[in-house]
């Protein structure tokens, strides 16, 4: 099921997987990471990179339902997988409640860590509809932000969680 197909001799593979709900089949250099394929081959530049060594969390995406660091996932390992990036969060013009609250609370200053933060937060809210401040802090403990001091990010997540629970 997860075997790779090789084309053009060595160097390239055909990768077929689902990105933000859409099936994709694409030939990519076989040494590429998921991060590189998303950004360079699929034009999904919403996923960022800050270190490429798994140290900053900027490239967090959801792979088969769980957050991963796209910089440390070989693209070849994604055959058949479901990938979700920041580009898949909004439904048409309707922002995901997390996106909406991030915008409202000033939680995205430079916006560079934002995609990773949003996906880590989305994952948290899927398993915990009403997280405490401390649970939010723990869930985001691998996502560095240099602008905000995190506080407005927590507030945005709390407000989004409340909205998603129907509390407001």
């Amino acid at each position: 099921m997860r075997s790779e197909r090789t084309i053009d001799g060595p160097g390239k593979i055909v990768l077929s997987f689902t990105v933000n709900g859409t099936g994709v089949e694409i030939a990519v250099a076989r040494h590429k990471t998921l991060l590189e394929v998303l950004r360079e081959d699929l034009g999904l530049t919403g996923t960022k990179h800050g270190c490429e060594l798994g140290e900053c969390g900027a490239c967090t995406v959801i792979l088969d339902g769980a957050p991963v660091l796209a910089c440390l996932v070989p693209a070849a390992a994604c055959t058949g997988a479901r990938v979700e990036t920041v580009e898949g969060m909004a439904v048409g013009p309707a922002l995901h409640p997390l996106q909406d609250e991030f915008a409202e609370a000033g939680a995205a200053q430079c916006g560079y860590c934002t995609s990773g933060m949003l996906l880590a937060a989305k994952n948290l809210l899927e398993s915990n509809r009403d997280p405490t401040r401390d649970e939010i802090r723990r869930a985001l403990a691998g996502n560095l932000c240099r602008c905000t001091g995190y506080l407005q990010i927590y507030e945005a997540i709390e407000r989004a969680a409340a909205r998603m629970r129907g509390a407001t």
Binding site: S3, P10, R30, H31, T33, E36, E52, L53, P74, A76
Partner: peptide, 12 residues
């Protein structure tokens, strides 16, 4: 961007 060197991937 820091990149991986070339490799082949196997998923036994």
């Amino acid at each position: 961007m820091l990149r991986l060197p070339d490799f082949q991937y196997h998923a036994p």
